[in-house]
Computed example of a mutant assay.
Amino acid sequence: MEEHSLKTGSRFFLVTLLNVMITLFELVGGLLSGSLSLLSDAFHNFGDAFSIILSYAANRIGKRAPTVKNTYGFRRAEILAALLNSILLIAISAFLMLEALRRFMHPEEVHGGIMLVVAVVSFTANLFSTILLNNDSKHNLNIRATYLHLLSDALASIGVIISAALILLFKINWVDPLMTLLVSLYIIYESWPIVHKTFAILMEASPQLDFENIKTDLLTIPEITGVHHLHAWLIDENELVLSVHVNMADLPLSQTECVYLKIENILKQNYNVSHVTIQAECNRGRGTKLLLDKEKDFHNN
Rank of each mutant, 00 (worst) to 15 (best):
149 H>M: 05
123 F>A: 06
88 L>N: 01
136 D>E: 13
75 R>I: 08
82 A>Y: 13
157 S>N: 02
163 S>G: 10
156 A>P: 01
149 H>I: 09
144 R>M: 11
150 L>R: 02
99 E>P: 15
162 I>D: 04
148 L>H: 01
155 L>N: 02
77 A>Q: 02
70 N>F: 15
189 Y>I: 01
176 D>S: 06
117 V>K: 01
114 I>K: 05
123 F>Y: 12
185 L>M: 03
68 V>A: 03
159 G>I: 00
82 A>E: 04
103 R>W: 09
120 V>S: 10
86 S>G: 05
100 A>H: 06
142 N>D: 10
171 K>Q: 04
181 L>R: 00
145 A>C: 10
140 N>C: 04
178 L>G: 04
187 I>F: 03
139 H>W: 14
176 D>N: 02
81 A>N: 02
96 L>D: 05
90 I>D: 03
130 T>I: 13
134 N>H: 09
115 M>W: 14
171 K>T: 07
126 N>K: 07
97 M>C: 14
184 S>T: 09
99 E>H: 15
112 G>R: 02
84 L>D: 14
107 P>N: 06
105 M>S: 09
76 R>H: 11
156 A>V: 10
170 F>G: 09
122 S>T: 10
151 L>V: 05
114 I>M: 09
111 H>P: 06
183 V>H: 11
105 M>K: 06
161 I>F: 07
161 I>E: 05
69 K>G: 05
101 L>N: 12
81 A>T: 03
175 V>L: 04
116 L>R: 01
110 V>W: 07
131 I>Q: 11
159 G>C: 07
114 I>P: 08
137 S>G: 07
182 L>A: 03
74 F>G: 04
121 V>E: 07
149 H>Y: 10
117 V>Q: 12
103 R>P: 14
168 L>G: 00
145 A>H: 04
117 V>T: 08
78 E>N: 06
110 V>R: 00
76 R>W: 09
131 I>K: 11
159 G>F: 01
117 V>A: 09
182 L>T: 01
127 L>M: 12
163 S>D: 00
130 T>Q: 15
86 S>P: 12
114 I>S: 06
116 L>M: 07
111 H>W: 14
85 N>Y: 12
70 N>E: 11
159 G>S: 08
139 H>G: 12
187 I>P: 12
187 I>S: 02
71 T>D: 08
174 W>F: 13
102 R>T: 09
164 A>L: 07
123 F>M: 12
120 V>H: 00
108 E>N: 08
128 F>E: 01
72 Y>D: 06
67 T>K: 01
123 F>R: 03
112 G>E: 05
85 N>C: 08
126 N>Y: 13
181 L>A: 10
73 G>N: 13
63 K>F: 15
146 T>M: 08
101 L>G: 15
146 T>P: 12
162 I>T: 02
67 T>G: 08
158 I>H: 01
157 S>R: 09
130 T>M: 13
161 I>Y: 07
163 S>Q: 04
